[in-house]
Design a protein around this nucleic acid. Structure first.
Length: 291
DNA sequence: GCCCAGGGGTAGT
DNA sequence: ACTACCCATGGG
């Protein structure tokens, strides 16, 4: 059993761990007795919020894992006020009818932030996410991670699995994925693992969104929606605008826009501007949680 | 049993 | 470019 290091971070900006870790951008965080268990940058981490998220105690097994790394992961340096204002400015050029709803939906006090997650993990997870509900996605991903016992790291009597690398997944057959109940996604994942150049994937961060999408959609199983999720959640591209069934309904209901996910992505960019991806996450949260 | 899910591929217009 | 249909599987 390794030694456990503790650190504490005081949060001076809006942040809600429940909303951030439970809004569909990440699948591997678990809340146990009010404490969030997860893996950040290949290190098991427990986050214990106090005083309504104003203070977070960080438990880790690495002496190096400290406030700054967590702040980076949680996007604490993102100015939610500036992001909201950016969207509002874009909105006022032709979509005045939505200003009131926008002001309510894109509320910094909701405390949702976009996480800085690993691109490879995002590619695999969102490829698997197609046509599954979030509850099922989490179970499938957990079963995949649990295949690799070497990736198990224990901390304080809990087990955490590091996400499998491409090399590790190279040993898995399509048939094995089917045994994990991945269904028709099994073939896609098998082919992705064989063909994707990880170095190229990581180099996408500095490229334009169009180039990211072109690279990603070249792989079977990665269409426009999945590619946008990877760009937004794994490549820090806030102009990405994933359109799933929920966002599609939203665009129809509030803007009378319909079409495939590529067309609606372009509409989303036009309506909400340079931070449309960030704003999309607030919309996603709102649409799924309204009564 | 039924409809739906953070969709994508494909064949036919 | 648009549509219709299929795909595996489990949640609610």
């Amino acid at each position: 059993m390794s030694r456990i290091y503790r650190d504490e971070i005081t949060i001076h900006v809006p942040l809600d761990l429940n909303n951030t870790l439970n809004c569909g951008q990440t699948f591997r965080w678990n809340k146990i007795n009010g404490e969030w268990h997860g893996v950040v940058n290949r290190q098991p981490v427990v986050l214990i919020p106090k005083d309504e998220n104003r203070t977070i105690t960080i438990k880790s097994i690495s002496p190096e894992f400290r406030q700054q790394e967590l702040a980076e992961y949680l996007g604490l340096n993102d100015s939610l006020g500036a992001i909201k204002a950016s969207g509002m400015n874009a909105l006022k050029r032709g979509y005045e009818h939505f200003v009131k709803e926008y002001d309510k939906i894109v509320d910094p006090d909701t405390g949702i932030r976009l996480l800085r997650q690993d691109p490879w993990e995002m590619v695999v997870e969102y490829l698997l996410s197609t046509q599954m509900n979030i509850t099922t996605i989490k179970k499938r991903i957990e079963s995949l991670c649990s295949l690799f016992k070497d990736n198990k790291v224990s901390m304080d009597y809990n087990d955490y699995y590091l996400f499998p690398t491409r090399e590790q997944l190279a040993g898995i057959k399509e048939e094995d994925y089917r045994k994990l109940r991945f269904g028709y996604r099994s073939k896609w994942l098998r082919q992705l693992v064989e063909e994707m150049d990880i170095n190229q994937l990581y180099q996408l961060k500095n490229q334009k969104l169009e180039k990211k999408l072109r690279f990603l959609t070249a792989f079977p199983g990665i269409g426009f929606k999945v590619a946008n999720c990877v760009a937004l959640f794994g490549l820090e591209d806030f102009r990405a605008f994933p359109v799933d069934v929920w966002i599609s309904r939203f665009m129809e209901e509030f803007f009378s826009k319909s079409g495939n996910s590529e067309k609606l992505m372009v509409e989303g960019q036009r309506i909400f501007g340079d931070y449309c991806g960030y704003i999309q996450e607030y919309i996603f949260y709102y649409i799924r949680n309204r009564v």
